Simulated assay, not measured.
Amino acid sequence: MLDWHDIDTVLLDMDGTLLDLHYDNHFWLTHLPRRYAEIRGIPLERAQTELGAEMDARRGTLDWYCLNFWSRELELDVAALYRETADRIALRPQSEAFLDGLRRLDKRALLVTNAHPDGLGHKLEITGIDRRLDGIVTSHELKHAKESAHFWPALREHTGFDPARTLFVDDNESVLAAARNYGIAHLLCIRQPDSRGPMRDITEFPAIHRFDEIMAI
Rank of each mutant, 00 (worst) to 15 (best):
R132Q: 14
I184D: 04
L188F: 00
V137E: 09
R83M: 12
R200Y: 08
D100N: 15
A37D: 10
A79F: 03
L21G: 00
F27N: 04
G121C: 03
G135C: 04
T203H: 11
S139V: 08
A37I: 00
P193G: 09
I7H: 05
L67T: 10
W28L: 03
W28S: 06
L155K: 10
R83W: 03
M1S: 09
D130I: 09
L133K: 09
D171G: 02
K146F: 04
I126T: 05
L44C: 03
H31I: 09
G121S: 11
E173C: 08
D56N: 11
D24M: 01
L91D: 09
A97G: 02
W28T: 01
A79S: 14
P93V: 01
E147Q: 10
I39G: 01
L81T: 10
F98I: 12
E173T: 13
I217G: 08
T61E: 11
N181H: 15
P153D: 11
V112N: 05
Y65T: 01
I7F: 01
A57N: 06
G41L: 00
T113W: 03
H22P: 00
I129L: 15
W28M: 01
T85V: 14
R131N: 11
V10P: 07
S139C: 10
G52Q: 06
G197Y: 12
D56H: 13
L32E: 03
K146D: 05
R191M: 10
R131G: 15
N25T: 11
L167R: 08
H26E: 15
G60Q: 13
L176W: 07
L74K: 07
R35L: 10
E173P: 04
D194P: 03
L155E: 08
E173R: 11
F98M: 12
K107W: 02
F211Y: 12
F69C: 05
H116W: 05
D13G: 08
G41D: 06
I214H: 00
D171F: 07
L12P: 06
T61D: 12
E50P: 07
I136H: 00
A53H: 02
A115R: 03
A53E: 15
D212M: 02
S95T: 15
Y36T: 04
L81R: 11
Y182A: 09
C66F: 01
G183S: 12
T203Q: 14
L44M: 07
S148C: 15
A207C: 13
R131L: 15
A90I: 10
F151C: 03
